[in-house]
């Protein structure tokens, strides 16, 4: 039982990492229909920005604020104006491919311009180990999980409680009606891109101590974020959290109790079945096919 708990709690902590990356993914999809295959790189870039600011002696909170501003400009506004806006009217394919190109460019740009090595990244939550009975938990695990929870709830509250948030949801659900209602649709869509950029920075801050700052960290992170988003339900921001946690825990349990080699496959197989039975994901709402 202690072993099971150990795996379960570790899985939750890892899962919250996936969830953080997956959250922005779902938001972009919901409001603008953008599938961002560079999502992992959107976390990798702020990681290196944070490292760079720290290297020139900027204290962490200031570095984080600066990174957020940079990210909103580059990964939010720049990404929207440069790639999403011109391409979205041609369907999802050109956006998918342009973001694939973007991820290749960013990943290899950091590699060629900075370093091909992994770099350590300081943890916000220290590095203490707590033992509860036979179960060991680190402050990083707890901190990441809690922060992920807070971020998801805050995003949810913002979308559901504030006027801007509701307007954004209206855009996500029905753009035409939103226009009729007098909502500034382009602005609402920009807000989503900005929020995605800030979430990516937060994810970077939380993930990098475990993931380590490396040029290719976005590769696996992007895939896991995508999985988390799909499993949780692409049209619900709580879904990404649930999806991420489920993936993290399932992988651990599969590794321990089924097969270490096929842990990824075991988890995926379960999810594919889930998706086939509940195509809208675990907590998503069903969207009817449009003619």
């Amino acid at each position: 039982m202690a072993d099971f708990l150990q795996l379960f709690i570790s899985g939750l902590a890892t899962g919250s990492i996936y969830a953080l990356a997956g959250l922005g993914f779902t938001l972009l999809w919901q409001t603008s229909g953008t599938i961002n295959f560079a999502q992992g790189e959107f976390v990798m870039l702020p990681t290196f920005a944070l490292l760079a600011f720290s290297a020139i002696g900027v204290p962490l909170p200031a570095a984080f604020a600066l990174t957020c501003v940079l990210a909103v400009v580059v990964l939010g506004w720049g990404f929207k104006r440069g790639i999403a806006d011109p391409l979205l009217r041609f369907g999802s394919m050109p956006v998918v491919v342009a973001t694939l190109g973007l991820s290749i460019a960013l990943r290899n740009g950091v590699r060629a311009g900075y370093s091909a090595e992994a770099h350590p990244f300081p943890s916000l939550f220290g590095d203490d180990v707590f033992r509860i009975g036979r179960v060991a938990v680190t402050s990083v695990d707890v901190g990441t999980l809690a922060a992920a929870l807070v971020l998801v709830l805050a995003t949810q509250a913002f979308l559901a409680r504030t006027v801007t948030g509701r307007a954004m949801q209206a855009v996500a659900q029905d753009t035409t009606s939103a226009v009729v209602l007098g909502i500034d649709v382009p602005r609402m869509i920009f807000y989503t891109f900005a929020i995605n950029a800030i979430l990516a920075c937060a994810a970077a801050l939380l993930i990098a101590p475990t993931y380590l700052a490396k040029f290719d960290m976005g590769e696996s992170l992007g895939t896991k974020a995508f999985f988390a988003a799909v499993i949780g339900g692409f049209n619900n921001s709580r879904g990404a959290l649930l999806g991420g946690l489920v993936v993290g825990v399932c992988e651990n349990l599969a590794a321990a109790y089924v097969s270490a080699s096929y842990k990824d496959a075991v988890a995926l197989a379960i999810f594919i079945v889930v998706i086939l039975v509940r195509p809208q994901g675990l907590v998503g709402q069903r969207v009817e096919r449009k003619v």
Binding site: Q6, L7, T14, I17, G248, N252, A255, A256, A260
Partner: peptide
């Protein structure tokens, strides 16, 4: 990412 299962084993 997560080495809890291998270490546990």
């Amino acid at each position: 990412l997560d080495f809890s299962a291998p270490v546990l084993k």
